[in-house]
Every structure is written in C-alpha cells, then in structure tokens.
Amino acid sequence: MNGFAGADLAGTLATWVAALATIAVWSYLTGARRLFVLMQHLLAGLATGYLVLLAIRDVLVPRLAVPLIEHPADRVLLVPALVLVGMLVGASWLPRRLMAPVAGILVGGIAAYALGGAVVGTVLPQIAAALPTTGAASPDLVGEVISLAITSLVLLAFLHGTPRGRLTTRAAGVGRWLLVGGIGGWLGFLVVSRLSLLVDRVAFLLGDWLTVLR
C-alpha cells in the first residue's frame, strides 16, 4: 500500500485518479503518444505550480513580506532584497543589463558553496579515505590497494588532457575503461532501481486499486 490516500471517499477517489493517470502514462507503450504528452504537460504544470506555491507560501511571504509589513523599521535591509526579488520575478521582461546585480549575487554564492563543499567535503576527505589503512586496523588490505589503484587510474583518465608520455597515456587509457566499467556497474544498479519502481506501480494497480493483491 502506498498509503498516500486515505480510506475515505476522497482517498478512494485519489486512488482511482492515480490508477487512471498511471494507465494514461503507460498507454505510451501501445503507441498512444498523445495521451502521454498530455500527462507530461499535466505533470509539468502541477510540479511548477507546486514549486511556485512553496516559494510564495513558505519563503517569500514569511521571510520577506510579513517582516516588511509587521516591522518595517527593523528590517530596512529587506527593502533592497525586495527590489532584487522583484527584478528576478520579472527577469523575462526586464533588460538583461538590469539583472547584473542579481546574477552577480547568485553566481558568487553558488560558486562559493560549490567550491567549499567540493574541496572540504569531497576532494580532501575522499583522498584521505582512498589511502589504505595500515597495520591490523585494515580488514581487507588487498581490497583497499585494488580500490586505490582503480581510483588513481580513473582519476587520471578523468583529468587527463593532452597526452604526455606513453606510460601516462596508457594508464589514462586503462582508467578510461575502468570508468566505462564503473558507469556500467552503476547502470546495473539503475536498472534494478527502475525495475523496483515498475513493480511497485504494478503492485499499486493490483493492490491499492483493484484490491486483488494482499
């Protein structure tokens, strides 16, 4: 049971609508593309509407509008924020040069979070973790050494630009194949992941909707 719909009339109706929506989407498999396209557009409309709803209800009203209305004197700094928010909302209709301050703040902030997170959160800890633990603390030293070798070769392949020397080029070539194999392994996980979604959807139709599945 997916449990999102209740047992009351509204819940039963939601289950029926959900089942019909599922069948409409899957009608694509029989070549009924028109219905599938319409369902995709409905999904786009609902998802965008939901995003706008959250942006207004959970962010812009409580964090910007309410403080400005209730305590305008204490929240003077929110006035320029209001202007920038207004500019971004109407970005499609405003001249591009007016958007420079907004773009600057977004680029600066996003780049700084990406840089800090990538270096401190991924690159440094993962390099440290790639090194085999020495002594009795390591339960699988051979595995760790193999893993380190694969990491190094994949990294070399990933960052390798112009070939420099035969050995490096060959190592990068091996790394490239390891990378392709790694992506293949990930695709195996993806296939199983997507299959579980398909099986769950079938179970929804049989269990929640037709109630023939226990």
Binding site: A112, L115, V123, A149, T151, L153
Partner: peptide, 28 residues
C-alpha cells in the same frame, strides 16, 4: 560495491570535485 565500483566512483567523485572547484574558482 566496496572495491572496484567504490574505487571507480571515488575517482569520479574526486575528479568531479576538482573540476567543480576549478570552475567555481574561475567564476569567483
């Protein structure tokens, strides 16, 4: 999961991390 795939994805994560850091630093 732990050895070949873990090794390959660790390399990929470090590589992507370095590229993201370089690209972000250029923007900054």
């Amino acid at each position: 999961r732990d050895v070949p795939l873990g090794g390959a994805f660790r390399g990929l994560l470090i590589g992507i991390g370095i590229l993201v850091a370089v690209s972000a630093a250029r923007s900054l």
